[in-house]
């Protein structure tokens, strides 16, 4: 059974077709990457999957349940959470508070529990804070727990954004260029980090330009160009695919 499956989805803005008749699926526990040149429609695809944009055509299933057309916040409760290409943390809040906002939908007490400080409030709140601290510890951010998000280093902010997504309880994480702007060592750490996430049972859909990361962590790769799927396969298959090389034509930066 596929965890997430998109069937023939299309989206156009005015005359521009951003995503064109795209098909793909992810099985539980996989790391799947979407690669392609800038402007290929990768982030648009993420925006569709997370409910920010609605498709013109096609269906999307999560656990065999249709999720296309659902409001973005409902999709989170179906178990999909994401990060953003340009980091969008709650910068004026502490690291742990960012995680606690992520855990909001699982933080089960009412307004009046909060106002009157009921027993339930303390129980749930304490549990969530402990879980949040544990989550941060597992990502190596425990020393930063009390810091404000905008005081973190770039790499730490990327990690915190992932932690916040994990806190929603999602099983499927959509990571939008997590290695962007990272140096060699940081992206190496990220590679290990993503493998660890996989071992923890998370399913990951990754947009990434850093081929060292993509080729090392992916179970399966989809290649997009001009909104279309131009290739798919295992990393070694993609590396030897001519259409992919064509899409990246002349781009000597990319070492497939």
């Amino acid at each position: 059974m596929n965890l997430l499956r998109a069937e023939n989805i299309s989206l156009s803005f005015g005359g521009l077709t951003a995503v064109n008749d795209f098909n793909f699926y992810i099985n539980e526990g996989q790391v799947v990457s979407i690669i392609g040149p800038n402007g290929a429609g990768k982030t648009t695809l993420f925006n569709i999957l997370t409910g920010i944009y609605k498709v013109n055509q096609g269906k999307i299933y999560m656990n065999e349940e249709p999720i296309d057309g659902l409001h973005a916040r409902k999709i989170v409760s179906k178990g999909i959470a994401r990060t953003f290409q340009n980091i969008r943390l709650f910068s004026d809040m502490r690291v742990i508070e960012n995680v606690l906002v992520g855990a909001h939908i699982n933080t089960d007490y009412s307004f009046f529990d909060g106002l009157f400080r009921t027993k339930r409030f303390y129980e749930v709140e304490n549990k969530k804070k402990q879980e949040g601290a544990k989550l941060l510890e597992s990502l190596g951010l425990e020393g930063r727990l009390s810091d404000y998000a905008d005081n973190l280093s770039y790499g730490e902010q990327r990690k915190l954004e992932i932690a916040r997504a994990m806190a929603t309880g999602a099983k499927l994480l959509l990571l939008d260029e997590p290695a962007a702007g990272m140096n060699h060592q940081e992206s190496e750490d990220l590679r290990v980090f993503i493998s660890n996430l996989k071992n923890l049972g998370y399913t990951i859909l990754l947009i990434e330009h850093d081929m060292r990361v993509v080729m090392n962590v992916s179970d399966y790769i989809y290649v997009m160009d001009y909104g279309k799927k131009i290739a798919e396969g295992r990393p070694h298959e993609i590396q030897s695919n001519e259409a992919v090389a064509m899409a990246y034509l002349g781009d000597s930066e990319v070492h497939l």
Binding site: R73, V76, A81, R82, R88, V101, H104
Partner: peptide, 12 residues
Amino acid sequence: KSDELATTMMGI
């Protein structure tokens, strides 16, 4: 206050 879209994406 910090980011409406990011808050929505937390399922809120």
